[in-house]
């Protein structure tokens, strides 16, 4: 185990960064740690299937050099599941048919968890009417815009939006 300043904390475990700085965070997760939730879809930041959370912020791990993430706290889909079972959003994805093949789902869910935190702190999107709003409601248009970095080739986007709005919408509060 590496000491905490030089380590990347991944799902609560300290991991030594790779010796070769070319290794992406995604390759570190998949090839060395055998965390296969994050997917290598395009490997160029276009599809979002590799989305994970770094200090609570969603990022695409394919464009992240792992060495840049020392001292950071990375959470993958494997780390979102608690001791009492799936994350509420995972349950909602099942409930709303938010996937068919499931390939993009870990990225979708990590992305939506990060999105919810952005909404809470008032991060505006391109479709937000009132840029000065303190907090932004996750309506359908907001969610569609904010989730545009996660593609689903099966076309489950309607179910994905439904699962997210049910989990984080005002009716769920």
């Amino acid at each position: 185990m590496a000491d905490s300043a030089d380590a990347i904390r991944i799902n609560g475990t300290a991991v030594e960064p790779p010796g070769d700085p070319r290794v992406s965070l995604l390759d570190l997760l998949r090839e060395r740690l055998e965390l296969h939730g994050a997917k290598k879809g395009c490997d160029q930041g276009a599809c979002g299937a590799c989305t994970v959370l770094a200090d609570g912020e969603r990022i695409v791990s394919c464009l992240a050099l792992a060495v840049q993430y020392t001292g950071r706290e990375v959470v993958t889909i494997e780390g979102l599941t608690g001791e009492d079972g799936p994350h509420p959003l995972q349950r909602a994805f099942v409930e709303h048919d938010g996937f068919q093949c499931g390939y993009c789902t870990p990225g979708q869910i990590c992305s939506a968890v990060g999105m919810a935190a952005e909404l809470e702190r008032g991060v505006p999107s391109y479709v937000t009417d009132d840029l000065a709003a303190e907090r932004i409601a996750p309506g359908r248009d907001e969610v569609r815009e904010r989730m545009s970095g996660n593609l689903c080739r099966c076309g489950a986007h309607n179910g994905i939006v439904a699962a997210i709005t049910e989990t984080y919408g005002t009716e769920a509060r």
């Binding site: 989305t51 969603r58 992305s111 505006p124 999107s125 391109y126 000065a132 970095g149 996660n150």
Partner: peptide
């Protein structure tokens, strides 16, 4: 998301929000 950018320079906040994806903007 910075308060002063959103209120004094909305063109900047909006331009950034129109670029790339949320993950890449982070």
């Amino acid at each position: 998301e910075h308060r002063l950018v959103r209120t004094r320079y909305p063109v900047l906040s909006r331009a950034i929000s129109s670029g790339a994806s949320a993950q890449i903007r982070n």
